[in-house]
Amino acid sequence: MNKQKALNLLGLAMRAGKLVTGEEMTVQKIRTQEVKLALVAENAGKNTRKKVKDKSAFYQVPFVDCFHSSELSQAIGRQRLVVGVLDSGFAKKIKELISS
C-alpha cells in the first residue's frame, strides 16, 4: 500500500517538474548535488545500478532500488530506469513511505 502511495507521489513530483529522469541526467544532477533521492529500477542493468549507487554514495544522496521499471515508468509516464527527485519535501515523504 505504501509502495503505491510512494509511486503516486512520484507521479505528482513529475507533474510538478521536480524530477530528473534518465541515467545520464540523474548522475549529472547528483554531481551538482541537486538530487535529494535517487531511484533505480530493481531490474536495471548491473552497470547502471552500480554507477548510480556509487555516485549516490560518494555525494551522500539516498539511493532506492525497490521498484520495478514498469512501476517507475507507469508512475512518471515515461519509460525510464533511473529517476532523481530534486525536491527535498518529495524525497523525504517518498523515503518515509518506502521504509515503513
Score class of each variant (00 low, 15 high):
2 N>Y: 11
2 N>W: 11
3 K>V: 02
3 K>W: 06
5 K>F: 01
8 N>G: 06
13 A>N: 00
14 M>L: 13
16 A>K: 13
17 G>I: 13
17 G>T: 09
18 K>L: 02
19 L>R: 02
20 V>M: 08
20 V>L: 09
22 G>R: 12
23 E>P: 00
28 Q>R: 15
28 Q>T: 12
28 Q>M: 14
31 R>S: 08
31 R>K: 15
32 T>C: 04
34 E>I: 00
35 V>K: 00
35 V>R: 00
37 L>Q: 02
37 L>E: 00
39 L>I: 15
40 V>H: 09
41 A>R: 05
42 E>V: 13
42 E>L: 15
44 A>T: 12
46 K>A: 10
50 K>P: 00
51 K>V: 04
51 K>A: 09
51 K>W: 03
52 V>T: 11
52 V>Y: 07
52 V>E: 09
54 D>E: 15
55 K>F: 15
57 A>H: 03
58 F>D: 07
59 Y>A: 08
60 Q>T: 13
60 Q>H: 12
60 Q>D: 13
62 P>E: 05
63 F>N: 03
64 V>R: 11
64 V>S: 09
64 V>F: 09
68 H>E: 12
72 L>G: 02
75 A>G: 06
75 A>M: 13
75 A>W: 05
78 R>L: 15
78 R>E: 15
79 Q>N: 11
80 R>S: 10
80 R>G: 03
83 V>N: 01
86 L>F: 04
87 D>K: 04
88 S>M: 08
89 G>R: 10
89 G>Q: 12
90 F>E: 10
94 I>H: 01
96 E>M: 14
97 L>C: 08
98 I>E: 07
